[in-house]
Design a protein around this nucleic acid. Structure first.
Lengths: 197, 197
DNA sequence: GACCAACTTTACATGGTGTAAAGTTAATCA
DNA sequence: TGATTAACTTTACACCATGTAAAGTTGGTC
């Protein structure tokens, strides 16, 4: 079958994209670089992905498929109390960001010049914001949401705390370990959101 | 004097840069656009500023000169308690960010492609981080710093809360008013950092 | 043996930054 | 007054990545 060949080439490109982004986070990764690493011509990449944003989006999905997201998310979904949901979600988020950061970083770099890239990013991140909303709702149901916050405001605050930029600032720039990030951000989130009403 | 003419042209360029950046935050502002707005050839801009990063840095300084930073910072410097220092500093920071954001945004957009731009930004932001450190120290002197935090960690946390990306996320994207930003972030910062030891 | 999907090769348009160099204008000074 | 020169203009070009275009090659498939 021809389409088997096509799928194989697609996989080669995605794997090359992922590997390159993981290795050299600093310098930017070209379409040409990726083609070269995949052992394929630059035009072939455009045959599979109509532009760079689409390739990066596909690379994100490629990672997601490897990670078994549903399994990883179970603890956050099953957590009984709001506080435990927050802990579980932040734990998940830190692990997940660690995996996808290089791709997100590439997308973030091009988001201002390229609407397609901006869309991919905002899709990805808004999905995660729903996780924040869930956690806040659970906390509110428990009666532990600080009366100072509306649910929307609390969601914005938690979402801000968990932003990709904050993560990279603390973990990449300031050198926090993953465990420090999880511990400190979890503590900060709970202390900010929880009120003894 | 020749140099008077030169200074006048320089001022024209800086003013044009500032106006353009303030008006159209969304689309990017070219060297050519700025030259045009200043009524000057593109090459003349390069005669005064060796590259875009330098022009933006000068535009930042140009704003600073207008703002009388020292006066604005007085309340934060004079505040007696750590808690009041935090409030005063966040108030100052929100006002200041509001003024310089368009320029910072332009610098942030180019920081990954251009080392000079990255340097300008990190200079500007590290100066502000010192403000966070001062506030944390004051809080610690009062004996009100949550024992969970070291001074360095607390500084990182406060600094993260006040990051430009967070500000734009809340104020630009989520539509918070300046007052909401100040009130909510101040409350969150105090609740996170202050401990009853 | 014809067909065609997948891929290659070559070439070009675009857009913004920065460099280079020759030409113009008018203030300054001997 | 006339030469000098600082400030600015004009024109042209190199660069670099993205994306488009089109003709050519290879090797399964029927």
């Amino acid at each position: 079958m021809h389409s088997e060949i096509k799928q194989k080439t697609r996989a080669l490109i995605l794997e090359a994209s992922l590997q390159l982004l993981n290795r050299r986070q600093t310098s930017s990764v070209n379409m040409a670089d990726i083609a070269k690493a995949a052992g394929v011509s630059r035009q072939t990449v455009y045959l599979h992905f109509s532009n760079r944003a689409e390739l990066l989006a596909a690379t994100l999905s490629y990672i997601d498929a490897k990670l078994e997201l549903q399994v990883r998310l179970q603890p956050a979904i099953e957590a009984r109390t709001g506080a435990k949901k927050i802990s579980a979600f932040i734990q998940f988020w830190a692990d997940y960001l660690n995996e996808i950061y290089p791709v997100l970083y590439a997308l973030m770099r091009m988001q201002h010049e390229d609407d397609a890239a901006a869309d991919v990013l905002s899709d990805k991140l808004l999905t995660a914001k729903d996780g924040c909303r869930d956690a806040v709702s659970a906390l509110d149901d428990d009666g532990f949401l600080d009366l100072r916050w509306s649910k929307d405001t609390a969601t914005d605050i938690l979402w801000m705390l968990l932003s990709v930029d904050n993560w990279s600032m603390l973990v990449i720039e300031s050198g926090w370990s993953k465990q420090q990030y999880v511990d400190h951000i979890t503590y900060a989130a709970k202390k900010t959101l929880i009120g003894v009403n």
